[in-house]
Design a protein around this nucleic acid. Structure first.
Lengths: 133, 133
DNA sequence: GTTACTGCAAAGCTTTTGCATCCCT
DNA sequence: AGGGATGCAAAAGCTTTGCAGTAAC
């Protein structure tokens, strides 16, 4: 947690609670998920603080903002390159920790500085397959 | 355009204008883009009609809803499998018409019916590189 | 004639912002 | 002490919805 102070973050109790919630979290939570969980510890916690903190972390490269869920932004504390698989029904997102070494196409390189890529796999998870039809 | 009638769509003038706007369009427009362009022909056009039509087309597999732009949904009339490259600054999206044959990882297959995938390349386009720093 | 679509306005959600207060460093 | 963070409420976007009227089939 000290590393956050080193990059110029003020470690308020609220932030520590958010950081602790995110640490090692592979559920790809939304702002709402984070808010409602951390609010248990800090009843005065506001959405503004959650969003402010997430934006600060994002700007310093400590978390990724995922756009894979069409309904809301999701956040990922795992900043190592990896990919994702989403259930089209329940929007569960799981990590796909494989590196596919996608070559950046020349066509793209011509007119862009290509900085990276992200593969989204989509499908239906077991729970949704069994549960509702 | 007849094919739309065949899948049970009523071809109103408004819809025809939207379909015509989308036909062969590779700009990955947002609902706002579609609305403001088609409104020139149909001053009474409403957002409801744009969204209703897009949702109807999506449900019948005639367009794709892209989640690659963090700010808004974008729509793609090209339903053949392909990938995208987005400029992180101006949010321009261009097609990457290459098939990378990504194998669906066993890890994923175990707990999901994997239906497809989509690769997002991200970077900075030439215009943004030159234009603003 | 039926059924489905249109258009307006209102509502619903997610996310952002202004601002006074507070607190970490 | 100073600069940044908090929290509340309000506002801003994007998207959805209810409903009465209308048009495609």
């Amino acid at each position: 947690m000290e590393r956050y102070r080193e990059i110029g973050l003020k470690l308020t109790p609220q932030r520590l609670a958010i950081l602790e919630y995110l640490d090692g979290n592979t559920s790809h939570p939304s702002a709402e998920d984070i808010y409602s969980c951390v609010k248990k510890k800090f009843p005065t916690m506001s959405f503004a603080t959650v969003y402010n903190t997430l934006e600060t972390l994002r700007k310093r490269g400590q978390i990724l903002e995922l756009t894979i869920d069409p309904d809301r932004k999701r956040y990922d504390p795992n900043i190592h390159p990896h990919n994702h698989l989403i259930c089209l029904r329940c929007k569960t997102i799981v990590d796909v920790d494989l590196d596919f070494e996608i070559p950046i196409p020349d066509e793209a390189r011509k007119s862009f500085d290509v900085l990276g890529n992200h593969i989204e796999f989509y499908g239906i998870c077991d729970k949704c397959k069994k549960g509702g039809e």
